[in-house]
Design a protein around this nucleic acid. Sequence first.
RNA 1: GACCCCAUAGCUCAGCUGGAUAGAGCAUCUGCCUUCUAAGCAGACGGUCGCAGGUUCGAAUCCUGCUGGGGUCGCCA
Length: 582
Amino acid sequence: MKAIIETLLLETVSQMKQAGTLPADLEPRLQIDRTKDKSHGDFATNLAMMLAKPAKSNPRQLAQQIIELMPEHAAISKIEIAGPGFINFFINPDHLADQISQLLADEHASVQLAATPQTVVVDYSAPNVAKEMAVHHIRSTVIGDAVTRTLEFLGHKVVRANHIGDWGTQFGMLIAYLEIVQNEQASDMELSDLEAFYREAKKHYDEDEAFAERSRNYVVKLQGGDEYCQTMWRKLVDITMEQNQRNYDRLNVSLSDKDVMGESLYNDMLPAIVDDLAAQGLAVEDAGAMVVFLDEYKGKDGDAMGVIIRKKDGGYLYTTTDIACAKYRVAELGADRVLYFIDSRQAMHLQQAWTIARKAGYVPEQVSLEHCAFGMMLGKDGKPFKTRSGGTVKLVDLLDEAEERANALIAEKNQDLADDERAEIATAVAMAAVKYADLSKNRTTDYIFDWDNMLSFEGNTAPYLQYAYTRIQSIFRKAGVDGDSLTGSPQLNEAAEQALAQKLTQFSDVVNNVAAKTSPHLLCTYLYELAGQFMSFYEACPVNKDGVADDVRASRLLLCGATAKVLKLGLGLLGIATLARM
RNA sequence: GACCCCAUAGCUCAGCUGGAUAGAGCAUCUGCCUUCUAAGCAGACGGUCGCAGGUUCGAAUCCUGCUGGGGUCGCCA
């Protein structure tokens, strides 16, 4: 719709240039907005106000000229001037009905595939080995997954990259402790509590000198490719990822073991990278370490900041890994675009690694590297979120609590459900609520973690959206129709019908925005508004009740069908399930 | 010390590239279930958009300064 108005306006502007009303070299940037207030029509442009000065005319007068010159179009029923010079456009309901008809007929609900599909590497989740996932891991995991699904829906090739923390000096200590635990249990073991495991390993390291010595020895052996250490290390990775996978499955996150590309993947590249950077004159030796000095960044003393890429003991740092990682994603994975869903605190570190990678020629200009940063999870006191005992809240505990609350609520709301169906619904509702609480917030800012907000099932929450969907399914059941196969063009007589139809046509814009801005909360806002419009329609426009004429009923069923389709697709992009009943 | 981010209703958050009367949810209050599921609907209450300047037809949005909070800054990741 915006595109139609844009075309018409462009034509008008070029006519005005020819007529000399506007300077010939003027290239105005067209801005067409949806109106907030229905009395201002459906769309508005501020074009006349922007052009008033160059045209040496007053805005309202100019608006009048624009309207007179503008070609007619069947989609627009009325054009008005309002306020200081806004031009308001009113959409013809017949055109809107056509769009609904198209949306119903299209599997993609009128969302076009990208004109130029890209290869996009999405780096998200990235839990640490030998640590249990905590609540703050939801952010990267769930937001990254939603963007991943959205990009795929738009026809891009997406490579999921789970950049797990599977390397570093702590692995000597972990291997040494795993050895002890295994000996005690005389066989392979299940690390039921990874947090405790890590704590105990650390304790041994701090208190037992022989253990610490053995740990340091294991680090060296592991890095040297020692088979025993490699095996033990692999065991730690496998046990951790097995546990993480249970969380992914439970949360309906589309990551699997084949997406694991941890830090260790780049180890073999590191020596050559340092050599190459030195050969290119980018890295120099300083106090025994290899350092890249960047003029773009200043250190504490105000001089160019030195980024260490190899320690004086020969060890590598995570900046080196991230340089290698960027190189790998371009050279091996063929990335056109790389998205990093990582904590905002890593911003400077990533910028440095990327600056070096670009200077070294590993990442060409046209490949974009984007830090899709998110803020920290804070407690109610505004400080970094911790439990009373100072630890983190386990993700599992949050999910368990969510299911318990959902189960209790459903038992109360709907007594007709069998136990197994209720449990199934409870899982879907609970996981949806937890994910949505995170997805619906702008990812860039810090946010407050609160059990009750996170586990709410009322208002702007996933269950509200799921509920809207089940209401539609219920209407289909009662009407005896298959909601997925409805086709045709609705009549849009009531205000609630028009508002709903109009909201439905915005889906495509929103999906494209989510992909461009890597912000799923835009989709959440949209789906909430859509569900809200549907709820109003549901109250105002009965479908199956007595006294509803056949043609009206058929028309309203079409609107229900289109709404169900968009809700299901939209929630699917967020990784949230829809239900037949709840 | 340098650099980056943030500040919107009692609480949690939206607010797109500057646009018309700053919006939701929660909480509080008033109505609405013999009628497609009340996890809902309709409505009320609630604001010095941190403060002060500037840019302009127009600023929560852009610029400068200030205050307050958070983060980061060579041998952890």
